[in-house]
Amino acid sequence: MLAAIFDWNLAVEAFPQLLVAFLKVTLLVTVVASLLSIILGLVWAIGLRQLPAWLGWPLRLFLDFVRMTPIPVQLLFVFYGVVVFRPRVDALIIGVIVFGVHYSTYMAESYRAGIESIRSGQWEAATALSLPATRTWRAVILPQAIRNTLPSLGNWTIAMFKDTPYLIFIHVAEMVTRAREFGGMKFSYIESFTIAGLIFLAASYPTAVLMRKLEKKLEY
C-alpha cells in the first residue's frame, strides 16, 4: 500500500535538487535576515526607551505598521517599488531586507519584554552610581535582559525559516516552490513535499538545540 502512495525513487530524485534550493535560498535568507533582525530589533527596543517622545512615537507607529501587515504584501510593495528605480536589483537582497525588518519588529517586542523584566532597582543603582547611559545599557541592563530574551529570539528565527516560501511572490524560488514544481512535473506531490518537510525539520531542530545550549551558557 505504501509503495502506491510513496515512491522512493522520486524521493531520491527530489532530494539533491531540494537540498541545493534549501542551501542557496532558504538557509541563506534565514541566516542573514536573522542577524539583521537581531541587531535591528535591539536598536528599536533601545530607541523606544531612550528617544525623546517626538521621535519615539513615529518609531512606534512604524514598528506597529510593519508588524501588523503581512509579509507577502511587504515583499510585493518593496519589490515593485524598487524595481521602478533599479530594475536589475537582486530580488534575494530585497527578500533579506524585508524579512530582516519584518522580524526585527517582533524581536523588538521580545527585547522590550526582556528589558522591562529588569527590576527598577537596577536602573536606580546605575543612576546612583552616575553611570553614563551607554555603560548602564552595556554593563547592567542588556546582559540581564538578553538572557531573558534569547528563547523567543530563537523562536522568531525558526518562524522565519518557515516563512521563506513567500519569497516566490518576488520571483525567488526557494525549496518549497521547487518541491511544488517537482511534484507538478511528476504528478505526484507527496514525495517532494515530504523531503522538503524533513529538510526543514533537520535544519530547525539543530537550531533549537543550539539556542537551548546558548541559553544554558548565559545562565548565572
Partner: peptide, 14 residues
C-alpha cells in the same frame, strides 16, 4: 491549489 492537487493525486495513487 497545491494542497488540493496533492490530495487528489494522493487519493488517486491510493
Amino acid at each position: 491549489v497545491t494542497a488540493t492537487a496533492a490530495a487528489v493525486a494522493l487519493g488517486l495513487a491510493a
